[in-house]
Amino acid sequence: MSDHDNTGQNADETRSLEINGVRIEATFAEAFDMKATRVIITALDEIWAEHAAMAMSGFGTSVIDCKLEIDIERRLSPKQTPDGRPGIALLAFGMSGGELEKQITRRAGQCVLTCPTTALFAGITDDVPRDKRIALGKTLRFFGDGNQISKVIDGKRFWRIPVMDGEFICQHDAPRTSGIGGGNFLLVARDIHAASRAARAAIGAIESMPDVITPFPGGVARSGSKIGSKYKSLIASTNDAFCPTLRGITDSQLGEGDNAVLEVVLDGLNFDAIADAMRAGIQAACTSCGEHGLVAVTAGNYGGKLGRHHFHLHEILS
């Protein structure tokens, strides 16, 4: 693997690689540093936990305009949660600690506090300094209008905020850690049906993996972007090199029969988590659709200028 390799090139990329007849391009995905945290939502049952998690992770696909990339990491059994109820762990990534805190606090207040029977806990146990912690109950407690109750249990502070179904229990704050955003791979297919099947196979392999999320709808983005635009107000615009309808007009990277491309974007808590997820996703996509319309797998990068984390496809899959 080549974490922090700024050349963007690798010796392994001179050879060709295929998996189940799918060409793996000799390129790399370029990812960048982010700030991250994990929160755990629990509820009386899985249904309420799911509602809260879906609300909290809504409009959290890309930092470009959502300011936060957030998604469900995994479902938790009652034995895995702090209060012994069914739960869901979410991973959230922001470009700065301040923006991450702002978004998490807002979403916790509007999406979890409001959802019946839920409770909210930190999902990272690291002992970090106070200035690297994200306020949860620390801010939300004021909703209790003076009737909130603090409890310190095993060294952790929790808030009990009176609400109409009883009490909303919320941990005081959650540690913030470093993360990596922008891991990706692109599935190039004959048609959208093959691309869709391959993408779903990839996401199916990734979704159970720890420390990583795929924040776009269904884990997949069709609107891959490049940096910049002819319009000055936009910081990103359509990745024309992979738009099949723009072949012949722009400098396309698609072949004659490449008619649909879908992108899987990954954020993770560390390099290995993203690399493992990319490997699992690509292998699943190739295995399920290699002879059914999936043509190639490639990745998005900016020549090594944007991010210091480079995921070389050939290295990951060798």
Partner: peptide, 11 residues
């Protein structure tokens, strides 16, 4: 009263 917070104690 539902003392949900009691489940946080592991002692």
């Amino acid at each position: 009263f539902d003392p949900a917070f009691l489940s946080l104690y592991s002692d």
